[in-house]
Design a binder for these strands. Structure first.
Lengths: 248, 248
DNA sequence: GTACGGTTTTGACATGAATCAATAATGGAT
DNA sequence: ATCCATTATTGATTCATGTCAAAACCGTAC
């Protein structure tokens, strides 16, 4: 049997955070060069998912967090009745699964929006490691608190802002996340469908569509399908603050 | 001078989680009896705030998390323009400040809704301790992920549910939280004003008021001011699922 | 190339909740 | 006990966005 050989073939799956171009966005940014090996020891790298495939499913046993290497992921929760709520979009360098930390089961479903590769962090190992590396623990707390804050911001957006404001905010958020990866901040392709945007922002698809065309007519953006160009970032920023000014 | 004596008078401020009636709801539930001393060592107990007083303020340096001993706290974020979004209500046994963990500054403002006493956990000490007690670390992760999940649920409520559904959900949430403390699940007094409810649920005060009276006319609840009695819990649960049935 | 399922866009209409406005109730402070 | 400020209720009207319906567009498979 070729078992031993197969086992050897697994070894290239070991991650090399050292060489990863995302190391300054991802978990490695939290720790010293000399501790990076210990993170590499627990990471499994290289899993690839096609568009639509599930990375994990709500209510199945929680095993791992995943860092996006390339592509994009959406997470959503399904309520008893089957109603879906998209809870987030995750781009390269971002960590998926934090909402399940310390739980027995995944709190949401994660699905690839396009061909996506991820690094996997088994939680048992991760918790063990954060117990030993205070900086890493601190960073985990930071990431989780960021997610809480983001979620609160979303709640605020949903409860207080108009359709235009919500969409402007999303476009700007995506823009800055592309920029972090040294990609164009004004010219990118949306990883998600209008439907996902609508669901995430608590709007009807039709409304999203209408706002896109309205923005286009105003010369603020140019969009053909998922290809978007932000023509007037200032104007978008103004839209998100529009609300503010009227109430002050 | 009586300085030394005063110093001695500080010592009773040391917490005694051992005797605290909330120990099965609060952080102590995560750890063994024999480790409880270590938690007690870092806790400062006994600070009391009157209605309306700030426990901490957004953007000031993050120093501590707080466990509610008695009373109630509301947290809110203020956006650039001064618009407020209530992000949560915290009852005895619950931990406030998790959304700031790992950050330099508080992410929100916390304010006492009534006369409230809290236990204070300085974060530097807390992080140190969670590094040493894996169970406590695990529990912190759990609490933080719970807060993320709760916030996602809120987002879902805000984006997909009607005013009646949102209010029913809030009443049921409060009910179960009173019940956990072995208080009446059907007869309690709301710690917050209609205004706070409205803000939290993304509604106008008038709408909240109207829904309360509608529920009352339907015999589902009985309310006079902040005193509420849930007359028909089943009906309330039905309201929260009403939405579901129509869409399935 | 063509045909098909799934998106996306556009239009017409309905509606839940916001807003505006006024009154009533409540609870501290004196 | 009384007064004032705050909070809560109720009513009339408006408006943003949802819903329904249909057409246009797109990518993919045959």
């Amino acid at each position: 049997m070729a078992q031993p050989i197969r086992l050897h073939q697994v070894s290239p799956l070991k991650a090399s955070c050292h060489q990863c171009s995302l190391s300054n966005l991802c978990l490695p940014l939290a720790i010293e060069e000399n501790e990076l090996d210990r993170l590499e020891d627990i990471v499994q790298q290289g899993r690839i998912f096609n568009r639509g495939e599930h990375i994990f499913d709500q209510s199945t046993p929680f095993r791992s967090c995943f860092a996006v290497k390339s592509g994009a992921i959406k997470t959503s929760i399904i309520s008893e009745n089957g109603e879906e709520q998209v809870t987030g979009f995750f781009m390269p360098g971002e960590l998926v699964g934090l909402d399940s930390m310390g739980s027995k089961h995944y709190a949401c479903t994660a699905r690839a929006l396009e061909r996506t590769s991820v690094c996997e962090f088994p939680v048992d190992k991760l918790e063990e490691l954060t117990g030993k590396l205070p900086d890493l623990q601190h960073h985990m707390y930071h990431l989780m608190s960021q997610e809480i804050q983001g979620s609160h911001q979303l709640a605020m957006l949903l409860s207080k802002n108009t359709a235009e404001e919500r969409i402007a905010a999303l476009l700007l958020s995506l823009s800055s996340r592309f920029q972090r990866r040294r990609m164009s901040a004004t010219n990118f392709s949306l990883p998600m469908a209008r439907n996902d945007i609508a669901n995430f922002l608590g709007l009807a698809v039709e409304t999203v569509s209408r706002v896109f065309t309205r923005f286009q007519n105003q010369g603020i953006i140019s969009a053909r399908g998922r290809e978007v160009e932000l023509l007037d970032v200032e104007a978008l920023q103004t839209v998100t603050r529009e609300f503010s000014r009227q109430n002050s």
